[in-house]
Design a protein around this nucleic acid. Structure first.
Lengths: 218, 218
DNA sequence: TCATTTAATGAACGCTGTTCATAAGTGTAG
DNA sequence: CTACACTTATGAACAGCGTTCATTAAATGA
């Protein structure tokens, strides 16, 4: 069956190698842009983030970036993507940490991981959920759909867990909506007024939320 | 006692009149800038708001604005101030609407007014509580202090009302913190994903919140 | 009428995102 | 080996931004 192999003359092999090398170089520069973008974004925040700084940081002309990304939003989208990856990772880790058949502990672990992520990665959180939540819905990007389905999964998991604690009778859709809203509100407030809402006060808020939502005794 | 009056020669009276006229003209232009700023801000939103557009809209050179406001932030601060005035007005009206000795109804009315304000004035809400919450803390501006004390009053009122419903034993500070966080989360989510969180769904969230927080039966 | 104060200008600076004709480098075919 | 074609990067250019400032025009006071 040797003859099934593509006829590889020396010329063709060289050609292929060359193509691969150029391709990998291209990916390398693309990655360098992404790295620089992530670094500068974390350093200067959303408003201080500029394409020209990214270009200067990697030693290229501003226009070069447009050979690798559509526009600033596209680059920002990929920065946000990194944020979402870290976020998902933190959530999954929290979910795996405890036994999955104790719904309340599961909810608590996820909630704590959510708030912690927000407090520890304010720049990412701001980008993803406050300044540019629209990036989640860039429909043409395959990752966007992944985020959305991940959020759906999360909501589904929350609903089953909450259903187990509270009984199926409750309005579980509204409850899971509200639960996200509460977590987001906590992080958003802590994020924009850190001097007012210091970590202990934030923790008390979260605790109160867990009690109000899921603990029986009043 | 007539001679106590300032000696008013014709010259001095003219002088005074002239001064007043120039002063009122100055205030007029200042107000025109503010009006244009409010209009253009509501039309183009936070990111699309520019000083140069404001200047062009009233037929002045860009630099002129700096004779009446410190910088863009200062102008934005006064736009936000208008938002806070409307917000406070809506809250006060809601508080006055119902009998003040039914704490739960009072809480509900205030909460509904809060969410309604957020849904009906997305541009103002975004500016005040999402994009630039720091404007609340411009310490040197007297209005900033007014906002803050208003927020304190609000929190105090909420605490007494909630205390009446739930008993003083609860952690009322954390609870009122959380209550604001929940309301803010609801509005923020509805604001950034209106296609997902349509008004009925938002109303259900708010209702669920009121039930979870203040209704007895589980 | 003349000097002084005030108000407004518009050009300039440095920054932003974005486009595009040009140039340089690289691979391919004859 | 040479000539052509394609890829990649450039940097100037454009329009817009916030902000500053020397200059000008106008109104005021003497």
């Amino acid at each position: 069956m040797r003859k099934d192999k593509p006829p590889s003359t020396r010329r063709e092999r060289l050609q292929e190698r060359s193509r691969q090398r150029r391709e990998s170089q291209k990916q390398e520069l693309r990655q360098a842009i992404l790295d620089a973008a992530g670094e500068l974004f974390l350093a200067h925040g959303y408003t201080g983030f500029s394409l020209r700084q990214v270009a200067e940081h990697i030693g290229y002309a501003p226009g070069t970036i447009y050979l690798y990304f559509e526009d600033k939003d596209d680059l920002l989208f990929h920065v946000a993507d990194e944020g979402f990856r870290r976020f998902s990772h933190a959530q999954q880790q929290a979910a795996a940490e405890r036994t999955h058949d104790e719904p309340l502990k599961r909810i608590r672990a996820l909630a704590e991981a959510y708030v912690d992520f927000g407090l520890e990665n304010p720049a990412y959180y701001r980008l993803m959920f406050i300044e540019r939540p629209d990036l989640m819905f860039r429909s043409h990007e395959p990752q966007a759909r992944a985020w959305l389905s991940a959020l759906d999964d999360y909501q589904e998991a929350f609903k089953t867990a909450a259903g187990a604690v509270l009984g199926e009778s409750s309005d579980l859709l509204a409850l899971s909506d509200l639960w996200w809203a509460a977590l987001h509100g906590i992080v958003a407030l802590a994020n924009s007024m850190p001097f007012l809402y210091d970590p202990p006060r934030v923790k008390r808020m979260l605790n109160t939320a867990l009690i109000r939502f899921f603990d029986q005794p009043r």
